[in-house]
Design a protein around this nucleic acid. Structure first.
Lengths: 198, 198
DNA sequence: CGCACATGTGTACGGTGTTCACATTATCCA
DNA sequence: TGGATAATGTGAACACCGTACACATGTGCG
């Protein structure tokens, strides 16, 4: 019943939640340990009981953001209707994933930026959904369904990822090309990717 | 003859040169106004006579880095031999540009990062070589030479840029896909781009 | 109960961007 | 030519940041 117990309970989780809030509203660059700890109601030094440095909390929110993106891709894939041939359906699922990738970046640019920020510190991999695996899985589906030739299967993942990742970066970044709206470009790139691997 | 004249002469240029050095060796995140001014032999406040804020010098080196990239692309394009049909040559020039884009990013990752860093401040456009225009120019060449159908000309630039830009980001970033070496991936993506627009 | 351990506090240090009054030099006009 | 005026650099100060370290406080286990 003490309004402020000395021990917080789950400071690590609370700090990460606060960090995600900051990223959502002001971007990863605005993330400050002092702000985070103040928002949680704790002293700056307290954070160091859970993260060795600011870079480690950045790396943690980057990983959470990548999981967020991967979940969006999976959700978009699983929502495509089951009608049509297995071949057409595998392509529709693949294209849904590509659209979701870019649309996530447009809808949440700061989160997307945080997801692929160059983090000076590396976290050990966890077993979470990753964009790369979602993409390769969809490509395997297409290969099995006969939508793309087996000979292209090897290079397809990097081609696909480069396309959607590049478009997402371009559309959310400072260097937007002149005179085009996003929707048409997403469709153009996703269709282009499929054409180049089929 | 005074060893240290009160006025520097061209502080703006000197600061930008120092900034580029820092970016080359330690990346854009390590750029500090105090370091820059110290390297040039001047007081921190002096920088504010030439740049309104640190963000503006970051924006300036970003623009210089983009010009650097564009120059590399042009150089690679202009070095492809003139033999063969105009059609084959236009494709070779296009592919040389794509390779140069990604190879520049690999050779100078910190400069590439700086080039497309999300700068909180926007500079008015100058008339310098830009990657986007180099790419579209090469695509126009291919269209005229009959290497790609005119119907694909409209979507080709965004497809091409997304592909090389995405691959460059992936290969220089933290999220490298497992078990592949860069060279093969560059060739795969550039070939894939050409297939998707031809 | 008592002791070890985990967790949060307080204070301090060096570094940062930025501001502002002031000193110095260059430029241009009467 | 000389003196006002604008351009440029200085110095000290402010608020903020990440981080370290000694210390206080609570938790859980023998």
């Amino acid at each position: 019943m003490a309004a402020k117990p000395y021990h917080h309970g789950d400071l690590e989780r609370a700090l990460l939640d606060a960090a995600i809030d900051v990223v959502r509203s002001d971007g990863i660059a605005a993330l400050s340990l002092r702000d985070l700890t103040k928002a949680v109601g704790v002293t700056p030094s307290a954070a160091y009981r859970h993260f060795p440095s600011r870079d480690h909390v950045i790396a943690a929110v980057a990983m959470l953001s990548r999981e967020d993106l991967a979940r969006h891709m999976l959700a978009a894939r699983d929502v495509v209707p089951a009608r049509g041939s297995a071949q057409r359906r595998s392509v529709a699922r693949f294209e849904a994933i590509g659209h979701a990738y870019v649309e996530f970046a447009i809808a949440h640019p700061t989160v997307f930026e945080a997801a692929f920020t160059a983090c000076p510190v590396q976290l050990e991999r966890t077993e979470d959904p990753r964009a790369w695996e979602v993409l390769t899985l969809a490509i395997d589906e297409m290969t099995l369904a006969g939508a793309i030739p087996a000979s292209r299967r090897k290079d397809a993942p990097i081609i696909a990822w480069a396309g959607v990742h590049g478009l997402a970066n371009i559309l959310t970044g400072a260097a937007v090309p002149p005179g085009m709206e996003a929707d048409g470009q997403i469709a153009a790139v996703v269709k282009g990717i499929y054409r180049s691997i089929s």
